[in-house]
Design a protein around this nucleic acid. Structure first.
Lengths: 227, 227
DNA sequence: ATTACTAGGCCACGAGTAA
DNA sequence: TTTACTCGTGGCCTAGTAA
């Protein structure tokens, strides 16, 4: 009896937006119904229930009435608002991945060492990566999908370039931390189309050495999401 | 089919708070049910409906699953959040009163001219009021009730004092504007207990003269609410 | 343990309508 | 016009239970 029912949220919120917190506002059940996408009868019932619950108070002028939100009504909406606020803004705003170290073909290392890339790394990441990438195999579908989603976000963009013969694609970098210790960047390559079951990292340091990682070692990567 | 149903708000919001925006989170329908104050079955159904609606996506591992909020799910919660945000914060944050000018007994004018009051007015309102109060008769129950509510808020407090013989009560001031023109303060006196059908205003200027008001003239007062 | 089906109750809603 | 009643339908929820 004390809690606000979820189907009253829109109704109460509408009264709020009309200034019902401080003033008795004049409104008909028909227009209220239209505004909350329900019937006149539903609006009438909503008000009755809100009144019984102590969320609003009414003053009648013959058939019509004025309505005002009570302190209790305010705190209910306020509570909900802060609940959502928490959920949205202070929810763990990082992506967490787990996977195992594997050996790559030295391919990533080769590309990332090209001068046109390192120049951009230097200016955009403020460091020149250790020559070599760390390859991590994601063994869980949910991590793969999560990277998939991430890859559609805007990271730090390293532009593509051409040496006259061929084109080298863009690279998107997402800052993160491996095993809570080493700062690194997850790199998404233009050439890697959809398969993110193996991901690559670059860092200022030699990650493998710093963390004493071997093939098959498990690593945990946290990537903060900023929006 | 596209809109989020109100009874799913809590469910989705809970998934959010667990970090479900960026990660696939592992959760059982039983614990989810407990968290949203519903049964395990209801939680199961909610997830099914949210999935069908495209608000979440699931990955199954045998019987259990991981769940993640989709972009669509995010924008729904976000929309609701902003709706509430608008309702709460940018709702007309002023109290509006209407009433008619009446003549007082000169009583308020007398008290408010006492030096111990004017000293405090000078320091707390930055002006010494014109000697005389404007009395306004509120003829609508809703305005009276609104003032009733207001009187329980903290305005600018003018402290009570004693001259040795008797005590002069405190005065609470609420800044406002009469007829959109003259700045003034609604004063709530300690001695006025509950009846706010007649309210009094003080101002730097002579309100009656400035606005050419006579007895029975209708005035409109706006009092901003700051919280 | 887990998810999710079925059955049944209760409640929210809209149509019709009185006042 | 207005509010708000009654009544029927549909949908949300829980209990029980299968897998």
């Amino acid at each position: 009896m004390t809690d606000l029912k979820t189907h009253h949220i829109l109704t109460l919120s509408h009264l709020f937006s009309k200034g019902g917190k401080h003033n008795f506002i004049t409104i008909t059940t028909a227009t209220l119904g239209k505004n909350i996408g329900k019937s006149q009868q539903a609006a009438s019932l909503h008000l009755k229930e809100l009144e019984n619950g102590g969320f609003i108070e009414r003053i009648y002028h013959g058939r019509t009435f004025s309505v005002k939100i009570t302190q209790k009504g305010y705190s209910e909406i306020s509570t909900l608002y802060h609940l959502l606020s928490k959920s949205i803004s202070s929810s763990p705003s990082h992506l967490e991945l787990k996977g195992k170290i594997i050996s790559g073909m030295g391919e990533g290392a080769y590309y990332m060492s090209l001068k046109e890339y390192t120049k951009q790394f230097k200016s955009k990441l403020s460091y020149i990566p250790f020559p070599g990438t760390l390859n991590v195999k994601l063994n869980d579908e949910r991590y793969i999908q999560a990277v998939n989603n991430l890859s559609e976000q805007n990271g730090i963009k390293i532009n593509s370039f051409s040496d006259g013969t061929r084109t080298f694609g863009w690279v998107k970098c997402f800052s993160g931390v491996i095993n809570n210790k080493i700062e690194c960047e997850l790199i998404i390559l233009e050439r890697t189309h959809h398969d993110h079951s193996i991901i690559e990292f670059i860092s200022k340091k030699n990650i493998r050495k710093s963390l004493r990682l071997k093939d098959n070692s498990t690593v945990k990567i946290k990537i903060p999401i900023t929006e």
